[in-house]
Amino acid sequence: MPRLEEHLAPRVRSAVVNGSFRLEIGQFSIKITSAIPEFADALIRLYAGYPASVEGGAYDFDIAISPASFFRQWARRNASFVLSGEAPFLPMHVNHAHALFEWGLNWTIGSYAHQYLILHSAVMEKHGCGVLLSATSGSGKSTLAAELALSGWRLLSDELALVDQKIRLVPCTRPVSLKNQSIDIVRERHPEALLGPVAADTHKGTIAHLPAPKTSISRSLDTALPKLIVFPKWSADARFRLEPLGSGQAAMRLIDQSFNYPILGRQGFERLVELVHTSEAWEMDYSSLDDARAALEQLVVERA
């Protein structure tokens, strides 16, 4: 399938409007429909390197980014996230539509892709070593994922670890969502990186997305084997600390950060146990991205 950037932009725009646009994000084929031009432009920028079709066909999820109701349009140009005709969230300003799409897609996968055990975690790979970076929001997980992705690691996801039946990590490679000061940090450290449009003052602060590296997108159907589970925690004055963590502890923390662990019942438990048995768990406190990257690179080199 050709990549989005290989289609003519007007052709893509009309396909997005008339419902014949499909975007391939790893295992998932998404039908994306929208009459909002700002959103189509952001999509073309952030997903340029992804396989895409403008001729319809099968899809896993049908998502629309729709203008809010006729009456609301008069007050403010809003956009709603709509999955299969239902809008689970409040509308947001059109300038935030692409951020809304990313959140909505996370929600969709977390609510309907129960073939996977889904953990709230970034997933990276180097030297054949799959690494989960599991942390609560605000722990610098996405910034670290962006740093690694821009330093030659393969990006599988900055938000969702999808663990299949054979305990493989299934890629869901998408733009990395950067918040507030992370945007400047990434810009400063990697001036060559082209970020997508900035969504200022969303309910989560200011958001900009780093498009996934081309090499990661081209491998978005190759699963990775989990070898390491790292719980990173950034704070401005942290002293660097890297300590092993017991598998029981790791399991408890992953359950806390899971989207669908209780929904999967026994299957969820079994996959989680196998995951923490096949991977080593570490806890990492850091203030410098250089320290964190160097430590992770050493860990994967030792295990390659």
Binding site: D60, H114, Q115, I263
Partner: peptide, 14 residues
């Protein structure tokens, strides 16, 4: 198709 069948098998687990 394989992909939807996978999603549906997840729905059965649920």
């Amino acid at each position: 198709g394989d992909s939807l069948a996978e999603q549906m098998s997840g729905a059965i687990t649920q």
